[in-house]
Computed example of a mutant assay.
Amino acid sequence: MHIAEGYLPPLHSLAWGLAAAPFVVHGARAVVRQVREDPDSRLLLGAAGAFSFVLSALKLPSVTGSCSHPTGTGLGAVLFRPPVMALLGTIVLFFQAVLLAHGGLTTLGANVFSMAIVGPWVAYGAYRLTRAAGGGLELGVFFAASLGDLATYCVTSVQLALAFPDAATGVLGAAAKFGSIFAITQIPLAIAEGLLTVLMIRLLVRVSPAELTRLGVLPAPAATTAPSTRTGA
């Protein structure tokens, strides 16, 4: 999801930036609303952004000289829903481009669209479907993190294929080739990211149960009624 600086044609970079912009603006409004309605959630917002920054900054060698990365966006999508992650992911990708030379400013829109928009929405959808099917919190978080990661790389494969279609098989053939290259390392990496995110949610359940309850991740404790003091006549 870190397409390098200058790697995409200018028109592609512009198109992906325009496609991502409405989601980022909506995400900024969602973050402002979240902080206004629940100021105590600022620490968890920071933790979700930091988790994504650290995981997606890892560079793990892949084949043909490329690299694979976790994304870390599944956690924030579960905690705060995808619009919030659109802004947090944009901030993460911007600072990685400026400070770590991961990605680039001309390709920021494309990277945001794959990692900060599509990835979180797929993650949140997987989480909700798992919970609706009777799965527990940890299973839902695992599928959210894993499938959100894979969805990011599927979109990146399409982005690269649109920019560099195969001479014989066109865009579809190029997308299949890019996807197969990523899959060698990304499938096991997505599973590892899912397990790591489960460990993170376990920690949050232990140290911040009240915050998770306010966010709707944990159910509210059942109300208890005091025993009656009335005695029969």
Rank of each mutant, 00 (worst) to 15 (best):
A20V: 11
A210Q: 15
L195T: 05
A176R: 09
I191R: 03
G17K: 08
S180T: 11
P188W: 13
L203S: 11
L8C: 10
A48G: 03
L215V: 00
C67D: 14
D166Y: 07
F53W: 09
R36A: 15
V207G: 04
L199Q: 12
L44C: 01
I181N: 02
G232A: 14
V92H: 05
S13T: 15
A168F: 05
G125T: 05
H69D: 04
G49T: 03
D149R: 02
R128H: 11
R206D: 12
A126F: 01
G194N: 07
V78F: 11
F164H: 11
G49A: 11
F80W: 08
A28I: 03
C67Y: 13
G140H: 03
L75N: 01
R81M: 01
S180L: 12
F53E: 05
W16I: 12
V217C: 01
G170W: 12
V141R: 04
F178D: 10
Q186G: 03
T225W: 14
V98N: 06
L60S: 04
I181A: 05
L212P: 00
H26D: 10
L215G: 01
L199T: 09
M1V: 14
Y124W: 14
A4T: 14
L105G: 06
V171L: 15
S66Y: 09
L199D: 11
P70D: 06
S180V: 10
E5R: 08
G194T: 02
T156E: 13
V32Y: 13
S180M: 12
R202W: 11
I191P: 01
T73E: 08
A19H: 05
I187G: 07
V198F: 09
A222G: 07
F142S: 04
L137D: 10
A50C: 09
T90A: 15
P221I: 13
T107F: 02
G17L: 10
L215F: 09
L189T: 09
F51N: 02
V207D: 03
P219D: 09
L100G: 02
T169V: 01
Q34K: 13
D40Q: 14
S13K: 07
E5H: 07
G46W: 04
V171N: 09
R33V: 00
V92D: 10
P188T: 14
L45P: 04
A192K: 01
E138V: 03
A183G: 05
Q159K: 04
D40Y: 08
D166M: 08
V92S: 01
G134Y: 11
Y127F: 15
L88C: 04
I91E: 05
S56Q: 03
G216F: 10
V217L: 01
F142N: 02
A226R: 13
V84D: 08
S41E: 13
H102G: 09
P10V: 15
G232H: 13
I201N: 04
G76D: 00
V171Y: 14
L99D: 09
A77C: 10
A4C: 06
G76W: 00
I201H: 07
F182H: 08
V217P: 02
G135M: 09
R36V: 03
I201W: 10
A175K: 05
V112L: 06
I117C: 07
L88F: 05
I187M: 07
V171K: 07
T231G: 11
I184N: 00
L189S: 07
L172S: 12
